[in-house]
Computed example of a mutant assay.
Amino acid sequence: MFQGRRVFQVGLGAELRRLRELNRFSTRSVASKLGTSPAWVSRNETGARKPTAGEVKELCVLFGVTGAQKDKLVAKACDGSDTVELPADEFADQLANVMTLEREASRITDFGNSLVPGLLQTPSYARAVFSTRGRTVSEVEQCVSTRVGRQCLLSRPNGPELVFLLDELALRRLIGGARIMRAQLRHIIDCAELPMVLVNVIPVDAGAHAGIQGPFAVYEFGSLGTYVYLENRKGGIFLTKPEEACEYLDVCEQLRGQALDVAGSAELIESIAKGLDR
């Protein structure tokens, strides 16, 4: 479904789906009005196919989309890059891409070397992180709400396998103070007990490791391809080329080899939390 596509196209599909639902159309009703099939509509929205600029224009007419918003959607249909960097003012597109990948992936590996990955963050921890980026209070709360809302993925029926690889240093960094960090650590332990969640910690005595240069997330779709997401301060970079994705799959394998097992990881996290109690 995802192999050979641009991530920007995933964002386009998510936006088309949002517009359809906003107008209370079913895939069948859209197909009927455009003289096509419900499968065609669904494939556009999931990114299984890339709609042409002309098709996007037809959908815009149907959904009542005009002006700058229409131009933006059509431009996405024309985009042809393989690696897309999204600046901060395109955060909505970036988030749509990430959420689509989370929804469709069969396995997600999320590595955090300085922070706890977003899918494991408590509201208080996330609030402390977002507050460092110069956002207003309302912007921070919106970001926190969105992040927490995405965490339903951890317990979703038939959801993806979720593997979290955490550098021990990320667990020892006092984000928000001892009370917030203690609650965050115990939240990670609770999440690790969920059926589809695995948490492995790379101890500090492992020394330099393959992920030391920065955090990343790998989204696997079986035989249909792999995407990698690299987050940075101004947005994020999505890698879609097979050779790039394979490199990060190798990194994941190396990190798992250096990490503690599930039981050892839980014991270390509990130990760090108890240290904060004292």
Rank of each mutant, 00 (worst) to 15 (best):
T136L: 15
T136K: 15
S138F: 02
E141P: 05
C143E: 15
V144P: 06
V144N: 01
T146L: 15
R147H: 06
V148K: 05
V148M: 07
V148W: 03
G149Y: 04
R150C: 07
Q151R: 08
N158R: 15
E161N: 13
V163E: 09
V163R: 11
F164M: 15
E168A: 01
G176C: 05
G176S: 10
A178C: 09
I180A: 15
M181N: 06
A183L: 14
A183R: 11
Q184P: 04
Q184N: 08
L185V: 13
R186P: 08
C191N: 11
P195I: 06
P195E: 05
L198C: 13
L198P: 03
V201F: 07
V201C: 03
P203V: 02
G207S: 00
G207W: 05
A210R: 04
G211A: 01
V218N: 06
F221S: 08
F221H: 04
S223F: 13
L224D: 14
L224C: 14
G225M: 02
V228W: 06
V228T: 07
E231K: 04
N232H: 09
G236D: 03
L239S: 05
T240Y: 09
T240G: 08
K241S: 04
E243S: 15
E244C: 10
V251H: 03
Q258E: 13
V262A: 09
V262P: 02
A263V: 11
S265N: 07
E267Y: 08
I269W: 13
I269S: 14
I272Q: 09
I272E: 09
K274C: 14
D277Q: 12
D277F: 10
R278T: 13
